[in-house]
Design a protein around this nucleic acid. Structure first.
Lengths: 117, 117
DNA sequence: TTCATATATTCAAATAATCAAATAATCGAA
DNA sequence: TTCGATTATTTGATTATTTGAATATATGAA
């Protein structure tokens, strides 16, 4: 039987993965790869509702993925630990293999020339 | 604005992460690190209800993380792509740093000597 | 001040995920 | 066959997550 400590760890890890289990949150992180961005810049870039965006930014901030800097009336978000991108990219590699195996729709996603992450 | 292809990719990736965003599913994967295991062995090891376990095995299988082999009346599950463990471990490293930064409860989890994943 | 802009928070509704009990399906042994 | 063991599926109840509209808050400019 699993001991308590181990399952506590699994609970924490699950929280970590859950934070990444949302399209908009992934899009936000990708959007912050090169530079910090203001909320309105993200809104423009991602085409999300203001309140929705703000809420998902809150999730990512709570879980420690991003942090905020205030400048006048704007708030700029940036990635706390750039290593998450290595992690996300490794995730992509693995999940691409899964898709390939299931003979899936990767072609459409991967596209040609397009630098898609 | 994000184009459709990119957001489709984010949706797929989110599904991938979401599959990992559950304590029992993580425990299952960890349990399958070294060897395949039957459902009843997992049930014993993880202390989960039979139906709950079977359901979560189904999620992991659907998403392509594990696959099944039938032997008599037992079903043995194994990890499809062992590289997911490198991925999970990298995830752990990153999320540990997040915890440390937030001054958190990692000590208790990490324990001494105990090989916790 | 007051106003406009940017962001966060609250709220309610809709949807999705989780759980465990009950039932079904499968298989080997008697 | 029938029985027992193993696993999967269905079901209903519960809880969690997501969404956008509405409202609140903060800040700088006039």
């Amino acid at each position: 039987m699993m001991d308590e400590m181990e399952s506590a760890l699994h609970r924490f890890k699950a929280e970590f993965f859950k934070a990444l289990g949302h399209p908009l949150r992934l899009a936000i992180l990708d959007s912050l790869r090169e530079d910090e961005k203001s909320v309105s810049a993200l809104q423009e870039a991602l085409g999300a509702e203001q309140s929705t965006l703000s809420q998902q930014l809150g999730v990512l901030r709570q879980r420690g993925f991003i942090e905020a800097r205030k400048e006048g009336t704007a708030v700029y978000y940036r990635t706390v630990d750039p290593d998450v991108y290595a992690f996300l990219d490794l995730g992509r590699a693995i999940f691409e293999r899964q898709l390939e195996q299931s003979g899936a729709l990767l072609g459409r996603i991967r596209g040609e020339g397009e630098a898609v992450r």
